[in-house]
Write a protein that binds this DNA or RNA. Structure first.
Lengths: 241, 241
DNA sequence: CGCGAGTTTGAGTTCATTCAATTGCGGTGG
DNA sequence: CCACCGCAATTGAATGAACTCAAACTCGCG
């Protein structure tokens, strides 16, 4: 399952802003192929690798003792997860499971990256910014759980997928099962379903895993009034991580 | 309002684990006294200082365009806020307002601490751990908003205030207005009020700002079944920051 | 064609919210 | 000293958003 690492630099800020990091780390990195339902990391296990998603979709989730699941992140191309690996003796705070038919991941050994951080001040500061972005992410999502309706949360998620595009129409594809997407958005699948219909009134058509937004502005108008990040939200990561 | 800095080291991990930091920073640090309703930081302002609370209570909050307020943190003795100051050109993602009659804060200039981070690898790694702890915090709170009832969230908050004590009785004092505490816990003041009554059935008596817990175990039993951090939650910060 | 997983629809319930009214309490002034 | 004011906190009743449970639908696939 393990094959040799690619020689091209993966497209993530952490690497593009720290070319030396990739150079140093690429020898120890392992590219791995996983398949549908494979478990990459387990909640509570020692964090032995930092993971970079090259392709595919990964679900990051936690379980409560009484059996409820929370989806803390949905990662795809270019996303990083398993930051616990940056710290000695840390364990993963969530499980990572493959959602797509196939997923290509890069496993960066914890010891290797930690060693590098110690020696490279620029890298440290990039990592700090990276960690801080996560906190902002999580806090924003927290705010949205309190101030937004389910429909607005879905709308917000769609707007983030539209990236920087701020008007006109757009068609998206989200190849993730609806019950998982619902959990990620903090609602039940039935609610997600009803929520899609509400968004029809602001020009969002859902069919299967394809979503067509006729007027991004109208969706923004519907969503962004309840969000304190209004404006700068397009800069936010979609993955929740 | 600005008086000379104390010569004793403040009791926060960041300083106790990095004695050299305090030594270097203490010259540039300013101790400031604020009063009820003073605004220490404003949401959106350039993050010019990292703040350490020596005494008093500070509310960290954001406003949405349509006027709702979210309380992202409640800080008291030993808490740090304004981590945005660690990054160049960042701005505070929340406002900080004094809740207590008086509050003593330590203002650590952003440039000063950033300079130090560059030179001290141990400090960097402590800061990273510190930032990561924030993310875990926020993610855990996010999970709790989805899986816990209002009563359980209040209970969880109380348990965190009990620190490491895991059984027996305890009396707490929370000198924070109920509507602010409610906002911090993600509910309305009326709900907080009703919630207090529900907790009476598991041995929690509230009167004014004093709260008596007769059996910590009973409260844990009521709360922790719905939390994926069960067990290790006593290590979590109370402030939400 | 028919099975089955995933998704949607429908009806009823629950938890938290809203809005309105009441209570409790510290402070002020007669 | 006590009546009264104003604010915070609580209580009550009605509403609402999202949930649960159950039934119906869709669509890919053998």
């Amino acid at each position: 399952m393990t094959i040799s690492a690619k020689t091209v630099t993966p497209h993530h800020l952490l690497f593009s802003e720290n070319p030396s990091l990739w150079q140093a780390v690429s020898k120890e990195v392992r590219q791995k192929i996983y398949h549908y339902h494979d478990r990459v990391t387990s909640h509570g296990d020692a964090a032995s690798n930092l993971w970079l998603v090259l392709s595919g979709w990964i679900k990051l989730s936690r379980q409560t003792p009484d059996g409820k699941e929370t989806v803390v992140g949905l990662c795809t191309d270019g996303d990083i997860f398993g930051e616990a690996a940056l710290f000695p003796n840390a364990s993963y705070p969530y499980s990572g499971e493959v959602l797509s038919h196939e997923a290509e991941l890069l496993a960066i050994p914890s010891a290797c990256i930690r060693e590098h951080i110690k020696q490279d001040a620029l890298l440290s500061s990039n990592i700090m910014a990276f960690l801080h972005a996560h906190t902002s992410q999580a806090q924003l999502k927290l705010e949205q759980m309190n101030t937004m309706t389910a429909a607005q949360r879905l709308g917000c998620f769609l707007l983030k997928l539209c990236q920087n595009q701020s008007d006109g129409a757009k068609t998206l594809r989200i190849p993730v099962e609806k019950n998982i997407l619902a959990a990620f958005l903090g609602m039940k699948p039935e609610t997600l379903s009803r929520t899609q219909q509400q968004l029809r009134e602001v020009g969002v058509e859902v069919s299967g895993d394809k979503i067509h937004i006729t007027h991004i502005e109208r969706l923004q108008e519907f969503v962004c009034g309840s969000c304190s990040a209004s404006g700068s939200c397009s800069a936010e990561a979609v993955s929740g991580i």
